[in-house]
Design a binder for these strands. Structure first.
Length: 882
RNA sequence: GGGCGGGUAGCUCAGUGGGAGAGCAUCGGCCUUACAAGCCGAGGGUCACAGGUUCAAUCCCUGUUCCGCCUACCA
């Protein structure tokens, strides 16, 4: 790549398109089933085809991409398996809306045509989110993209359904399910969102059939009384003693229903009498079963009342409620109405109030599957990170109920069951049966219901790898290495994949599950359309660039805490990206004439040895952080190192060499600089792939893509422990001088003279060897080095351990300021010294604290003592000058 | 009702049984030939409250309080 002068500001747009295209064209995202390398695999949480990239996707995929790019650079054979989810109800809703706008509906056009239209819609719009993921830099193996409705995955679905049915883990029956009257389908318990609503508790009188008086029941849903088949009281309740065998008359309909006794009834609540509607309430359904009560369903699937509702037939359910209340009032049967707040279930897709309804549905018997899934986590076969989610997982798994998997919609995997119209036989098979095995009849009708979308999602980690066929992909990449996802689908998805993977492949679907945070707004509110607080990731990508956005997300991705995202935050890290750009710009400007890097340790400057040592340490730290899914720590380490060590210190110090007339010195510096810049971009690549590739390609003597360069490891750099200590001293002295300059308002233009008093010969030696750094970084004109001299007049002094730095400020110094400054230092030092001395005066501390701690405190007390003495001397001298 | 998480600088948050940190914001000084999306420097915190364990607690334990989220079949 040509070494043009780089632009002053990083321009992400063009760079991003160019390199993404390059990576794809060069097959750098492709996984290999014939590789000898260790495998590393991730299946993407498949986004809905109706979806558009939101913050959750952005975070989720950024983290996965970091892991994948990191592992590739570490030499793994990486598969990031992408794909999309058919999202049954959501997609059907979208297409239905479209039909409605054209004045028709799915029933008019019929099932076959409707499904065809959904496919067409999917062809047109279903790939949108995939392109958005690409803009994020996602390094998925797109040649393996899958869709839950693909032939292969559909085959897996049928295989699983048939086997579970054959092994009695799938059954069909009449139960109370959650019905959405708008989506017109059953929902699983999980798909119901409970929300507290202000409502009323109605006290209704049920007159006795054969005598005066009445029982009063309390209900929130008076319209269901039409389906009541009993009133229940607690057998221990004295108030209702002697009612055994008696009946009450159902208001309005005047149907006699029995009074029954069941300990389920809470005596404290309401009147202690509970109306029982087995066809419209899950609890009542249970009680109905124990007492063999009739089930009377009075509400239709569209939420209207049916013929069993008598005079209310045809009314919408809420309208019916009002009418019944009117009628109860006029007949004197409404005792009272009190305001009452309680949780009401809503459809997670359309927010319509759920109607518990008696209905014939298909279920998965979940108990036996859950047991193994619990054990797998308990045994550590799958690790959930952060581990507190393991408790949440157990909690849910232990209380799990059977899973209603049938949906009364058209878009999805049609349940592979056929009903013989001749003899009623149910045939469950992978392929359409030719005839009824029982009566040989030919008139078979397939079940019209489709499966819950999550049923196919549950198979994702192996269906995408080719199961039920025995493929190389499965052999190489199952179990996958890690699943990265949000906790909101821990139950919906993760738990179910665990169950299915264990059952059908005999092994967990993933070794690790990393649960990341939710992305919220600055106020900590969930982002939602209704709140209007959504930050659109696509807009962010346009404005700040992908790398800035990714880096922001990763540095905010703290385990166990939600992310509060703001644009200022992103802008801040955009500045970091620009900083990287300019550091590279500077380095490349100075590498135009460089030779291939070679290092001879004896020629290195202190700054060289120090930065080499540090980058090695940093590489190791980052490796540890990524390995532990501590993305924020990894990103912070990068930020801190690149900005505040590499840029602020190393590059500044390297200028001395680069601007030197000594060609040899320049060459050494160029070598170190190449190694460092190469190391820095490789460290950063998993987080900020685009800018690092751009720099990598411009860096002399690099080959191929940075994507397949090796991730830095400490052994490629020189390690020199001493250089760290020496730099600490040097940096301390330079900072001290700058500090004085700042406090005394000495303009940067103005050189100052300093006197360094270094009694300790070691420190003195180090400083003497590195005077040029002090001169240039602290803007010092001349330096005198002395031992044990008096503090010069007209000077401000900085004390660093055994070294004192006097900055000569004749004509510049304000003695009041300097006195204040020294006084402040004295107070601070006194506080620390007192603390240490008090500890040392404590016998228990001396006896019981570990020796090295005692030693540290002793040393500190000594240091503070010396420092205090010197500071006091300076202060006394200043007072004398008054 | 049950469960989980959290209260640390003005804001957003790291962190550790032994010297309170970062980013942003604020204040002061700088257009120093990589970068003003920058450079140099500064100020700012009883680590929610009360007990306990310990030589030593912001950190461990108990309680209180406040704030989130998840979950639940008291109608």
């Amino acid at each position: 790549m040509e070494n043009d002068v780089l632009a002053k500001t990083y321009e992400p747009k063009e760079v991003e398109e160019r390199w993404y295209y390059y990576w794809e064209r060069n097959d750098l995202f492709k996984a290999n089933t014939k590789s000898g390398k260790s495998p590393f695999s991730i299946v993407i949480p498949p986004p809905n085809i109706t979806g558009s990239l939101h913050m959750g996707h952005a975070l989720n995929n950024t983290l996965q991409d970091i892991l994948c790019r990191y592992r590739r650079m570490k030499g793994y054979n990486v598969l990031w398996q992408p794909g999309t989810d058919h999202a049954g109800i959501a997609t059907q809703n979208v297409v239905e809306k479209d039909l409605a706008s054209k004045g028709t509906d799915r029933h008019q056009i019929g099932r076959e045509r409707f499904v065809q239209l959904v496919w067409e819609w999917r062809e047109k719009f279903g790939g949108m989110i995939i392109n958005q993921l690409k803009r994020l830099g996602s390094s998925c193996d797109w040649s393996r993209e899958r869709f839950t409705m693909d032939d292969g995955l559909s085959k897996a679905v049928r295989e699983v359904f048939v086997r579970l049915y054959d092994e009695d883990l799938i059954y069909r029956g009449d139960y109370i399910i959650n019905w959405c009257p708008r989506c017109h389908t059953a929902l699983a318990d999980l798909e119901v969102e409970h929300e507290d609503r202000d409502s009323y508790l109605y006290y209704i009188r049920y007159p006795f059939e054969d005598r005066e008086g009445y029982l009063i029941v309390a209900t929130t849903r008076p319209e269901t009384l039409l389906g009541d088949t009993a009133v229940a009281v607690n057998p221990e309740d004295e108030r209702y003693e002697g009612l055994s065998g008696s009946h009450v008359l159902l208001p309005v309909l005047n149907r006699p229903i029995p009074v029954i006794f069941d300990s389920y009834v809470d005596r404290e609540f309401g009147t202690g009498a509970l109306k029982i509607t087995p066809a419209h309430d899950p609890n009542d359904f249970e009680i109905g079963n124990t007492h063999q009560l009739e089930r009377i369903r009075v509400i239709n699937e569209d939420g209207s009342m049916n013929e069993l509702a008598g005079p209310y037939k045809g009314m919408e359910r809420f309208q019916c409620r009002e009418r019944i209340l009117d009628d109860l009032r006029s007949s004197g049967l409404l005792e009272k109405t009190i305001p009452y707040r309680h949780a009401v279930g809503h459809c997670y897709r359309c927010k319509t109030m759920i109607e518990p309804l008696l209905s014939k549905q298909w279920f998965v018997k979940i108990g036996p599957l859950a047991e193994k899934a619990i054990a797998a986590v308990k045994d550590g076969k799958t690790r959930i990170v952060p581990s507190n989610w393991e408790d949440v997982y157990y909690e849910w798994m232990n209380n799990i109920r059977d899973w209603c998997i049938s949906r009364q919609i058209w878009w999805g995997h049609r349940i592979p069951a056929w009903y013989c119209q001749g003899c009623g036989e149910i045939i469950v098979a992978k392929e359409e049966p030719r005839g009824c095995p029982s009566c040989k009849g030919k008139d078979l009708q397939q079940e019209t219901d489709v499966l819950d979308t999550w049923f196919s999602s549950a198979l994702w980690p192996f269906s995408t790898l080719g199961w039920p066929d025995s493929t190389d992909e499965l052999k190489t990449f199952y179990p996958t290495s890690v699943l990265v996802t949000g906790f909101d689908i821990l139950f919906f998805w993760v738990a179910r994949m665990m169950m299915m993977g264990l059952y059908f492949l005999g092994d967990v679907p993933f070794r690790d599950v990393y649960i990341h945070a939710l992305v919220k707004d600055e106020q900590g509110q969930k982002m939602s359309k209704s709140r209007g607080n959504i930050i659109d990731p696509l807009e962010v990508l346009d404005r700040f660039g992908t790398d800035a956005f990714r880096f922001t997300l990763s540095i905010l991705a703290i385990q166990g805490r939600d992310i509060r995202l703001s644009e200022e935050r992103i802008a801040g890290y955009r500045n970091f990206i620009n900083k990287i750009w300019n550091a590279a710009r500077f380095s490349l400007m100075n590498l135009k004439d460089c030779k291939p890097p070679s290092i001879d340790k004896s020629n290195l400057t202190l700054a060289d040895r120090w930065i080499m040592t540090r980058i090695g340490e940093v590489a190791e730290e980052i490796t540890g952080h990524i390995g532990g899914y501590r993305f924020n720590d990894a990103a912070s380490t990068c930020y801190q190192f690149v900005w505040h060590e590499f840029c602020d210190w190393y590059l500044e110090m390297a200028k001395l060499e680069l601007y030197s007339r000594d060609q040899k010195r320049r060459e050494v510096a160029q070598s170190v600089m190449q190694i460092l810049l190469s190391g820095v971009v490789r460290l950063l690549h998993p987080f900020v792939p685009f800018i690092t590739e751009e720099i990598w390609q411009r860096l002399p003597y690099t080959e191929g893509s940075i994507m397949i360069a090796q991730f830095p490891q400490p052994t490629e750099f020189i390690y020199d422990d001493e250089s760290i200590k020496e730099m600490d001293l040097l940096r301390g002295v330079i900072t001290g001088i700058r500090n004085i300059r700042g406090e005394m308002n000495v303009p940067p233009r103005k050189d100052v003279r300093i006197v360094i008093d270094g009694k300790g010969s070691r420190e003195r030696q180090i400083l003497e060897n590195n005077l040029s750094y002090i001169t240039s970084l602290a803007k010092v004109g001349s330096i005198d080095i002395v031992s044990g001299a008096e503090k010069p007049k007209w000077s401000a002094t900085y004390v660093f351990g055994d070294v004192q730095v006097h900055v000569l400020l004749k004509g510049l110094i304000n003695y009041d300021d300097e006195r204040k400054r020294i006084y402040k230092e004295i107070k601070k030092t006194e506080r620390e010294m007192d603390l240490s001395r008090r500890k040392l005066a404590n016998k228990d501390f001396l006896n019981q604290a570990p020796p090295h701690i005692v030693e540290d405190v002793r040393e500190k007390a000594g240091l503070m003592g010396v420092r205090l003495e010197r500071l006091n001397k300076h202060l006394a001298m200043l007072e004398g000058l008054k």
